[in-house]
Write a protein that binds this DNA or RNA. Sequence first.
DNA 1: AGCTGCCCACTGTTTACATCA
DNA 2: TTTGATGTAAACAGTGGGCAG
Length: 224
Amino acid sequence: MMERADDLGLSLSLSSPLAPRTHHVAMLLHAPERRFLEMPLLPAKRVSAVSADEERSGQRGGGSDDEDGGCGMDGSRKKLRLSKDQSAVLEDSFREHPTLNPRQKAALAQQLGLRSRQVEVWFQNRRARTKLKQTEVDCEFLKRCCETLTEENRRLQKEVQELRALKLVSPHQYMHMSPPTTLTMCPSCERVSNNNNNNNNFTGDRRNVVDGAICHRPIAVRPQ
DNA sequence: AGCTGCCCACTGTTTACATCA
DNA sequence: TTTGATGTAAACAGTGGGCAG
């Protein structure tokens, strides 16, 4: 029963102060990935489950059992389940600042009726979850990049083969052909562009245009 | 150099839910 | 259809190491 990340609906907002510090790949994400990252916060299934449990147990919201560390009379630790409201407040707070200073922590703990330690642990776990989900997103994105590049490579190999064959068969016609698809890699930003639309790599203007931005050290790659 | 507090990674326990016989 | 066993994912929490003040 592997739940997909988007089913879980965890928010991994790139606007989070956590994101730029820890995840470089996230900065490269295109629109679909962004949409995923901006999904709602709580897994709906879990929310309803907790609510049902709340109704059954009548516990929740107060952490009144926590000064003893949540242990029952027999010494067994009773697992705490945060209420929907507590979770919502914590999530809101997390979105504002993924790490807490001692004052914020104490205030939040008081507001929610929890121990500071519980708030601290919740934030630690929340950061870990965020990181895990982000890693999954990054992995998925890189996988798609790899597939795209593999496909592009295959296409270009084929094109090279065809051009070589053409060159052998009719060299004269080959000389008068328009330039084939050519990829140009910018050495500074390491991005690859298709210069079919701008042939300035092979004209007077030797600058390299990558997605509209002009880089200054052109490298032209042409089929042999 | 030792202390303290914080964070992270790892791990264990508990809980809820899905599936199947 | 109901029920109990089982597997899995998620949430909460403890522990130890690293690091900065």
